[in-house]
Write a protein that binds this DNA or RNA. Structure first.
Lengths: 150, 150
DNA sequence: CACAATTCAGTTGTGCACAACTCAATCGCG
DNA sequence: CGCGATTGAGTTGTGCACAACTGAATTGTG
């Protein structure tokens, strides 16, 4: 096999990783005012959209496990943005809900997506297209990961 | 502004982040045999391609700073894959070079890109196109990040 | 009902990303 | 030359990602 395929600039994963971190830098600045990190912002997005939900379901929506979410949620709770309480009907489960303060933060977050979109320099159609491709990619990779396990 | 833009499934950054982590899972399995993590693999790619180079330049190619690279390189050195030595002509600079073992690993890494490409389910043209768009995105975000600083 | 298997959240340990910082080497300007 | 500014690597501290694990609650099966 030619070395071509080992060239850094041919690795899609590198471009992906670089783009993801470049987003991180832009978000970091925008979210600083809100007192959120980027992963915390993603959690808040789900809560603003769905309202109260168990940790398990939050993890499904964000593709994150309890090892990542438990400490993150603890920090959000310490900052007064969410409440966590054991479910009455299933004591294994913990429901995560917005506090007043957490719900109120939605107002101030409202302009973040627009500013991010502006930073990309892409129009809405381009963003939609790229998003669709990335979702397709993720799906394929997940399927491949499952095969690896077997 | 409508809530639409705060929906998780509208956030390009989330798709990007998810795809990046999905890649991580697939790489993790493939690279386990080589004893590399994914960021370590990226460093090795650069070294296989460029040969010896200073930490500074490595960081430029990978968009990583010394805070990330220093401990990572220390681990690669501990695993016998690279050597680090202060430059004679500029004592501030540290050159990173492959050991015999590190150079030899290239052979075994040769099939990784093909297996990754297969896992994506994309053909080469699709990958090239996606890569180009992501690079464009990164460039735009970097430019926006610079504006933020000012 | 009993009890093994499963589910859920949380903990521990490792590694990466990045900001903020230190410290030594080098550069550049007067 | 002398000295302040800059550069390069490294350290420290915080937070995220994830594997592997624990322990308690629940479920399913005989």
């Amino acid at each position: 096999m030619s070395d071509t395929y080992l060239r850094l600039d041919r690795q899609i994963c590198f471009s992906l990783n670089a783009a993801s971190r470049a987003f991180g830098s832009v978000y970091r600045v925008l979210l600083k005012d809100l007192g959120l990190t980027y992963p915390q912002y993603l959690v808040m997005l789900v809560l603003w959209e769905d309202g109260e939900l168990p940790v398990k379901r939050l993890g499904e929506r964000l593709r994150l496990d309890s090892g990542t979410l438990s400490p993150l949620l603890k920090r959000l709770e310490a900052n007064g943005l969410v409440r966590r309480e054991r479910s009455a009907r299933d004591e294994r489960s913990v429901n995560v809900a917005l506090t007043e303060e957490g719900a109120a933060l939605k107002e101030r977050a409202a302009e973040v997506p627009r500013r991010i979109a502006a930073a990309t320099g892409f129009d809405l159609a381009e963003i939609d297209d790229l998003r669709a491709r990335l979702n397709q990619l993720t799906e394929a990779l997940d399927a491949a990961a499952l095969l690896q396990d077997a």
